[in-house]
Design a protein around this nucleic acid. Structure first.
Lengths: 208, 208
DNA sequence: ATAACTAATTATCAAATGATAAATAACGGC
DNA sequence: GCCGTTATTTATCATTTGATAATTAGTTAT
């Protein structure tokens, strides 16, 4: 088999394998799953750790759509629409066995790539959503009144509704809503409606 | 040292150790952390797996308060109060490094104790919350119209806001709200307000 | 067809790891 | 203080595991 093809096969197999067993999964078991011998892995990757590193790259870099970053601030559309659209598309990217589990395993392991990834979520999605909520609710801009930890917590709440659904399903094997699109629509409606009711009072007695 | 004391020390140490490194953590490292030799572990537990089993017992059984099960249906108090009280108390029990991480590690590992635990969450808390919401919103009782997967998803949403906060903090090391009690109050207000807005329409076009 | 190259396998190493056996240290009762 | 009991340690085993070296098999160019 030609090298680039074989390499892709190994990486693909490694993603599924580590997603299932965690990064302590044994190279021999991975090789068996791939139908190759264990030393062959070392012709393509100098060490197990370097293969794992490659798995991170593959998993994280491929599933982010930079259009989302311009979708959130697009005031031509109602905010609820933008949020629903974003989370539905995001679901198509990350409501996935291997993604969710590798994200959890690597988080528990403390890999730095998670920090970078979550910083993107925060800076490119959550903070912009806060900005839109301020605008929506006629509250002072972030330049005038900086974002508070309580406000950020509010939007992490929406993200939590979304992400915990995946944890429930892919980590704990529980059933989730049959109609994901509708579930996401519900998440967003609850969030938008609820946020309207409390966002204002939040900024009055802010303590950071 | 007397045996029961030593055993408790080992279990305690094991909880913290496995929470940090996962269940693939090495018995020698655990022993070192405890200031004892590795074979001594085997005088108290016949195998590593049995020690892990013991860790599960300790973690899960100790942190459930059966009073919560009667708190949720107590119609003398406003539902929002009951929910806020429950989640604040629950936070005191489970917003904890070792609990959250062992819960995640064991979930990914597929240990059956998680199924049992989550079944309790569902049957003793979430379904009852649905029942209260039905009552609150003047909707038909669950005996007349059985709970739908969409409704259950709604209350899992609140749970997700709550639990993902812990994941963010203890798995990914991110900062969370300074004032946890207020954050929980916000979760509940968003949920109750939002649910009021969508719960009714949910039961009309229900498809299970 | 054969040489050159390289993909892949077999054989193997050294360290790590769960577990056990034998030896030692500590403690309590008399 | 001596003796039996047991908590604990030292020494060690058998496997497992990541990694490497040597060998074989398969492909391509001439």
């Amino acid at each position: 088999m030609n090298p680039s093809e074989r390499e892709a096969l190994i990486v693909d197999g490694a993603i599924g394998f580590f997603a299932e067993y965690g990064f302590e999964g044994k190279t021999r078991d991975l090789a068996k799953r791939l139908g190759i011998t264990q030393p062959l892995l070392y012709r393509y990757f100098p060490s197990k750790e370097s293969l794992i590193e490659r798995v991170y790259q593959e998993i994280y870099l491929q599933r982010w759509n930079s259009e989302w970053e311009s979708l959130i601030p697009d005031r031509n559309r109602p905010l609820a629409d933008r949020l629903t659209t974003f989370y539905r598309q995001y679901a198509r990217a990350v409501y996935d066995f291997v993604w969710v589990r590798i994200f959890l395993y690597s988080g528990l392991k403390g890999v730095d790539i998670n920090d970078r990834y979550l910083a993107i979520i925060k800076d490119k999605i959550l903070v912009p959503v806060c900005r839109e909520l301020r605008h929506e609710h006629g509250l002072p801009s972030m330049e005038k009144v900086p974002i508070t930890s309580e406000e950020l917590e509010l939007v992490w709440g929406l993200h939590g509704m979304f992400f915990y659904r995946a944890v429930r399903h892919f980590a704990y094997g529980l059933p989730i809503a049959k109609n994901i699109d509708r579930a996401i629509e519900n998440d967003v409606r609850i969030f938008v409606t609820g946020a309207r009711a409390i966002h204002g009072s939040m900024l009055e007695n802010a303590d950071g």
